[in-house]
Structure formats: C-alpha cells, structure tokens
Design a protein around this nucleic acid. Structure first.
Length: 274
DNA sequence: CGGTGGACCTGCTGGC
DNA sequence: TGCCAGCAGGTCCACC
C-alpha cells in the first residue's frame, strides 16, 4: 500500500487538478469498505466546489467549499485516478466523483481495506482514525529526543515501533525495512534498548528515506501508481525489501526474510546489528 | 497500558 | 498445464 510517500505523491497530483473544480455527480458501487460507504453525505457534495487537498498521515483530505472534508484512505490496494468521464467503470471501482471539466476522480480498491468518510474539518481530531495519530515524520516534532523519550521501557521490536501510527505516522512495511537497513539496526531489536545515538540516526534516516521516496514519486510494487497511471521510481532504490536471498548491496551476504508482527521483514544479518 | 495474533477482502503467483 | 496455499504496501480489535 501506499505509505506516506505514495499518498503524498497522490495528494500533490490532485492538488494541481482538483481545487476550483465543482463536483457534478457522485456514483458509489460498494456498500462497505473498512467502514460503510457514506452514500448520503457523498451525494450532498454534488454542486459543491473543491477548495483544496491535504495529507495527514496516510489519509487524503479533500476540503470542500461547503465546510465538509472528504477523507480517503487507500488501505493496501486503493488507488485514485483521474479518468475521462466516459471511461467505463471496472470491477472494484467503488467511487466516482464527476467533475465540471469532464474528468472523473475514481477510487478503486480491490481488497476494500480503504476508507471513505465525509466529515467537518473541526471534527477530524474526534474521528477515531485520525484522533490518535502521532506527529508527521517530516515535522520537527519527530525528533531524536521525541523518539528516545517515547521508546524508553518499550519492549516491542523497533520495526513495530516505527510502524505504529501512534508513535510516528506514515512509515509502513517497505520504508520501515529500508530505514532500518540504512541505519544497520536489526528489525527485531527491542526499541527500548536503542541508545540516543542510534535513535537519532534512525529518525534522521526515516526522514531521508521518505523524502527520497517522495522525490521519486513513491514506490510501485504492483498496483500503486500516480493519478495519471505513472509508476513510482523508488522501487529501483529498494535495498532489502523483497530481496530475499539476494546479495546485500553493502556486504554481499544474502538478505533474510522473517515475520515480525505478522508482516514480512527484510534485513541483512551481517550489516544489521541487534 | 503494552504486546501479540487474527480478522477484514480479493487477486496474483510460485511451487508442486 | 492446472490447482491452491500463501502472500500482498494497513488498520482494528480481542485477548493475554
């Protein structure tokens, strides 16, 4: 799925297309994703103009002129595309917003782990999904001190910790493995045992990896792509993710794959220390 | 509260 | 060639 860089890539693209456009029609083809499709609230967006597009964590926030915000989470397999209004919808195209320029914002999500909500912006913090979110990883609030303080006495593996959206948002399974590889930290390491120096390196590296991924338009694994269908280029910079058995780019040792917290995790057993 | 494991969905693929 | 277990970028909830 889309982790922060992929969502940011989508948000940036939408920002240059959507603001000022008026919604002329809404079509829903699915009753329930992670939550029930808010059909009525979506219908109320007809004839409303789009004010702007923001991102918070892995959520896309499309602010409307009526004072409502359309919240979309892409889950594992969600995509947003701008299509021509005449393009026939395919299986798993769950939501269309027709626009006044003849285009259509189309949300597709085969696995239905995504989320569509319509809320008032001042209620964003009260929504369960958005209320408990941690600082943005690219903000100053996500600092070495913050990380060090928060991780003391925590016994969870460092990989789980950096993927926990209550500690820092936006880091998912790919960038977690990549960030730990670059800092030579083994994913299984108990986070509370990392010293300030390694915490500091990890924080810095997470920012670096996310920024690089944003700069290259994200990572395309199977079905992520930009709103125009383009593919993310960060996939070519992956050093451990999905490289089981292949030589480590630093030491040639075969990359190992293990399961942590139910998720595939990749690391170099020689470079990455406990 | 903290940590873990399963559930939620559908589609693709690797290995027999 | 064909089948199916296993796996997929996320989040939530129940349980210890």
């Amino acid at each position: 799925m889309p982790e922060l860089p992929e969502v940011e890539t989508v948000a940036t693209a939408l920002r240059s297309h959507l603001p000022g456009r008026k919604v002329t029609g809404v079509t829903t083809r699915c009753e329930k994703l992670r939550r029930p499709m808010p059909v009525k609230a979506l219908q109320n967006l007809i004839n409303v103009t789009i004010r702007g597009v923001r991102r918070r964590a892995k959520y896309l926030l499309i602010d409307m002129n009526c004072g409502q915000t359309l919240v979309i989470h892409l889950g594992m397999t969600g995509t947003l595309r701008l299509t021509d209004k005449d393009d026939a919808a395919k299986r798993h195209d769950h939501l269309d917003l027709q626009l006044d320029n003849g285009e259509c914002l189309r949300f597709r999500d085969p696995r239905k782990f995504g989320l569509v909500m319509v809320v008032k912006p001042n209620e964003l913090g009260e929504i369960k999904e958005l209320g408990k979110l941690a600082p943005e990883p690219l903000s100053e609030e996500f600092s070495s001190d913050y990380f060090y303080r928060l991780s003391r006495k925590r016994t969870t593996p460092v990989k789980n910790f950096i993927m926990d959206q209550r500690r820092v948002v936006g880091v998912g399974n790919i960038y977690a493995s990549e960030s730990l590889f670059r800092t030579n930290i083994r994913p299984t390491t108990t986070v509370g045992r990392l010293g300030l120096k390694r915490c500091s390196q990890l924080v810095k590296t997470i920012k670096e990896v996310l920024n690089e991924a944003i700069a290259t338009g994200g990572t395309t694994i199977s079905d992520f792509h930009g709103v125009d269908g383009s593919e993310g280029a960060f996939v070519r910079k992956l050093q451990v993710y999905g490289r089981t058995g292949k030589p480590c780019v630093k030491c040639q040792e075969p990359i190992k794959k293990i399961i942590i917290g139910g998720r595939s995790t990749f690391y170099c057993p020689k470079c990455q220390k406990r």
